[in-house]
Every structure is written in structure tokens, then in C-alpha cells.
Design a protein around this nucleic acid. Structure first.
Lengths: 187, 187
DNA sequence: AATTATTTTGAATGATCGTTCAAGAAGGTG
DNA sequence: CACCTTCTTGAACGATCATTCAAAATAATT
């Protein structure tokens, strides 16, 4: 029996790049064929459908996101400083010329109207990220404060992911998050 | 000479509903034909292209949005109370079963990667909304504070437009905006 | 080396996409 | 009532969509 001859992880990374930038509807399987180098038959044997490939790309992105957040918060000298670092990185993301927001946020807005498992998965991963923040905050604050501040952080992150497209908005974003999250140890 | 026999404003409102819900790519001209009752030829004579119709729908939506904001802020007993009312309405929007975020925000995320005038128009209207807040805030605060708080409000509005898809998230949204915009006269 | 199981290939499928156009209908003008 | 302009109609266009499939190729097993 023959084994798959392509690198599955590499194909998924290429699919993440494509779907993240253009979204689900605006990405065609022909573009997938072009950017992965695979033939249609191989893609369908490996992933079943466009939706199947998209789901696997989105799941990988979500896992990477949570890993990134944990890495930053675990390596910070305090939870608050870790969150500051993270938010500043989100602002910095938006200054890149190839900035394209957050794959989860874009998918949430694009696919909410059709419902389905892709939308439910996206919602669950965003909720998991909020739970992650709440978990970290509970090291230093009580349950109520942690819940409120986690929600506030999520609102700011979502806000940054949209505001990031405003030309020259980085400085206003920095001012805005410092005004809205004034309890954080900004320096 | 014959005059147009359809109600242009009505067709635009129907197009807003379609494009707002499904986005640009996921809305087909066949759906436009079905939901407006017009024949393809009539649509193309009146609007030129799918993009032309979309642009007119988006422009109308943007104008309606600014009108709505001005109406609420002008009828409030103070700028701060008007903003509270507006934000609570945005939270309330998200509790509707047919909630579909904000047409401008969705378009910003969907069409940023292709660039073009639709994206530039969307950016300019969102910037105009921020300028509107700054203008109102300057009645009560100095220039620096007004600029920072307008940015903070925009971050929160964008956040609400994404967070609104989280099931049962209304209460957490209310907590989050009150935590992030604690300088507002919440009651 | 022969056999078997799996993957790759790439042309082809029917459906749907945005758009066009020639012909007919309708209203304003003389 | 004819005339001319404008609008409506709906079939049709070529392009592209996601997907399929039979045949060839490849690797593991016997």
C-alpha cells in the first residue's frame, strides 16, 4: 500500500493562509490546488470536501492561537503584564502589510448566517479563549472580577481585530486599549 | 420615454438585507433577482453590476447608521447618557434571532484582502463614525481625552459586533462594556 | 517478483456564477 | 394616434464553481 506523498501539515498551513486571507466563500478549490500543488483528487481523498479542509485549517489555527496565548501568559512576570504584552502584539500585527485580522473572528462573521458546525466550532473556540483569560485572571482576582475583566479583554481583542484595518490606527488603538483596560500594568 | 417601474429605495433595502446577512461573495445575483423580484436586465440597467448594487446598499446602510447615532445622541440628556443608550441598544441587537452584526464591519473584514473602493469606502465611513463620537465628546472633554475615549468606544462597538454572536453573551457584554467604559454614566 | 492496497492524476461532470442582448412592452411627446 | 425613448423580459453566454472517477503510478506485503 502507498502512503501519502505530501506533507499534511504543510498543506494545512498553506490552506490556513489562503482561507484566512480570502475567507471561505471567496477561496476556490482551484486556488487550493494552485497554492498546495496537490491535484483535486488528492485533496478530496485526504480531506473529503472544501468544508472538511477548511475545518481542519480552522482547527489548527485555533489550536495555534491558544498555544500562543498560553506561551505569552506563562512567560510573563504577572498575568497583567502578559495580557499587556499580548494586546500590544495584536496592535503590532495590524501594522503588517499583509494583516488580515483573526481567522476565527473572520469566520465567525462570515459563516454565522449559515449556521452549521463550522460556526459552532468557531464560537466554542472563542469561548475557550475567554475561559482561558478568566482562568489566568483568577490567580489574582476574585471570580466576579475575573469574569468581567475577561469579557472586557475579549471585547478589546475583537475590537482590535476590526480596528486593525484602519490605516494608521495603531496609535489610536494603543490609546484606546489603555483607556479601556486601565487596570492593567501598562508601562 | 418610460420611467422605472420599481421602487428603487425598496430594492436597495431588500439588497441591504441580503448582502448584510450573507456578505458579498455568498450573495448571488440569482438571490438578488429572487428577493427583489426584478429581472437581471433591470438590475444591470439600474445598478451596472453586482458591485454597483452592493456599493449603493452599503452607502445607504452607512448613512442610516450615522443618522441613527446622531438621533440617539441628540435626544439624550447628555453625551455620556446617549452613548450608554446606544451601546445598550447594540447589546440588545445581538439578542435578536436574526442578528447579523454590522454590515460595515462584516464588509470591512470580508473585502479588506481584495482592497478596492468598497474597502476604502467602508474604512472611511467607520472613520467618520469615530469622528462623530469625538465631535460629541468634545462638548464635555478636552481634545486629548475626547480622542482617546472615541477610540475606546469604537473598540467596544467593534467588540460588541463580534461578541454578539456568542450565545447568551448579552449579560457578559453588558458587564464588559461597563468595565471598559467606566467613565460613562451607567445606571 | 508478484500481489495487494493506497494514492495520484487530470480530464470531465453538472451546477451555478455574473453578465449580456435582442425583442417586446410601456410611457412621454408631438 | 404614431413616434421615440426608456425600461422590462427571459433565454442564453462563457467562465468558473465544487466534485467525481477510471486509469496509471506507487509503496508495502507476501
Amino acid at each position: 500500500m502507498a502512503k501519502a506523498q505530501f506533507d499534511r501539515n504543510k498543506v494545512i498551513d498553506q490552506s490556513i493562509a489562503l482561507f484566512w486571507q480570502h475567507g471561505y466563500s471567496a477561496s476556490s478549490m482551484q486556488q487550493v490546488v494552485k497554492c498546495t500543488g496537490l491535484k483535486p483528487g488528492s485533496i478530496y481523498l485526504a480531506f473529503g470536501s472544501k468544508e472538511g479542509l477548511f475545518r481542519e485549517a480552522l482547527e489548527t489555527y485555533a489550536q495555534n492561537s491558544i498555544t500562543r496565548i498560553r506561551s505569552i501568559l506563562d512567560n510573563a512576570s504577572s498575568v497583567g503584564e502578559g495580557i499587556c504584552t499580548l494586546l500590544d502584539k495584536f496592535v503590532e500585527d495590524s501594522t503588517r502589510t499583509d494583516y488580515c485580522s483573526c481567522f476565527l473572528v473572520k469566520t465567525q462573521l462570515e459563516l454565522a448566517s449559515v449556521g452549521g458546525e463550522l460556526h459552532e466550532f468557531t464560537s466554542s473556540r472563542l469561548a475557550a479563549i475567554e475561559a482561558e483569560f478568566r482562568h489566568y485572571l483568577e490567580r489574582e482576582y476574585n471570580s466576579t472580577i475575573s469574569r468581567q475583566r475577561a469579557a472586557s479583554i475579549m471585547l478589546h481583542i475583537f475590537g482590535l481585530r476590526v480596528y486593525g484595518y484602519q490605516q494608521g490606527g495603531a496609535e489610536r488603538m494603543r490609546e484606546g486599549v489603555r483607556a479601556g483596560l486601565s487596570w492593567l500594568p501598562w508601562r
